[in-house]
């Protein structure tokens, strides 16, 4: 039988994710889950129901859930962007980051080496590491913006001429892509792009939580980033 070998040590902590950011993260995660599942079933519907059409409204409910979650995603992103302006500096990271700083690319390179098992320890960041910023900005933020724009363009096709979605999105976006069918195809492809982001995001968050010297998953619940040792925080 082994004895517990943890020695007494201090765990420095930094408050990183403010309440609105945390709230947004989990609401947004739920919205994406609903959007991906309902979206898939709009493209490839469930097996046909028999009986009277007036007894069912299955596609109607699926589409309603998709549109409702779409609104949550869109206004969530707007709210999150607002918080990037008024919140702390960490709230800005995924939207705006100085990519001209050599230290950013140095950090990104180091993080890549860490994932390729070429270095023994990752650097420590109180906010996102440079690779995380890269992925969240390019895969997540722009992927979501794309989905919101194409999504509302198709939504406007249904609400019709004169509706805000039609005037703001449909009129210019559909001709830009060629035709409605192309917008549908791209909306599907980018759904998978976001699903791939989610796979990587969840894996990396859990892995970092276990293998690096800092908390990840619990930080998005409590807001505090704790470090498992007193080594210096690299940041950038």
């Amino acid at each position: 039988m082994t004895t517990l070998s943890t020695k007494a040590h201090s765990e420095p902590a930094v408050y990183v994710y403010e309440a609105p950011v945390r709230l947004w993260h989990w609401i947004n995660a739920a919205a994406i889950t609903v959007l991906a599942i309902t979206g898939y079933f709009i493209g490839s519907p469930l097996p046909s129901l028999s009986g009277e059409a007036s007894d069912y409204y299955l596609m109607g409910y699926i589409r309603f859930a998709h549109f409702a979650a779409g609104y949550v995603l869109a206004f969530g992103l707007l709210g999150r962007a607002y918080w990037a302006i008024v919140g702390n500096s960490h709230a800005r990271e995924i939207f705006l980051h100085n990519i001209l700083k050599p230290s950013y690319w140095g950090g990104l390179w180091h993080e890549l080496k860490w994932y390729l098992f070429l270095t023994k320890e990752p650097r420590k960041y109180s906010g996102h590491n440079p690779l995380a910023i890269f992925m969240m900005h390019w895969m997540y933020v722009w992927g979501t913006v794309f989905m919101i724009f194409t999504g509302f363009a198709m939504y406007g096709e249904g609400t019709g001429e004169g509706s805000w979605a039609h005037s703001l999105f449909t009129v210019w976006l559909i001709p830009l892509f060629g035709q409605s069918q192309d917008v549908h195809t791209w909306h599907h492809l980018v759904m998978w792009w976001i699903i791939i982001f989610v796979i990587i995001h969840v894996y990396v968050a859990i892995r970092e939580d276990i293998m690096s010297r800092q908390s990840i998953v619990s930080s998005m619940i409590s807001g505090w980033r704790t470090f498992k040792d007193e080594g210096k925080i690299d940041n950038d």
Binding site: T185, L189, M191, W192, R207
Partner: peptide, 24 residues
Amino acid sequence: NADEVGMGAAAVVGGAVAAHAAIS
């Protein structure tokens, strides 16, 4: 089609993630 392409890509990434986790 878009779903086949997307699902294929997701499977590749999922496989890569699993392999990466194993190596880790």
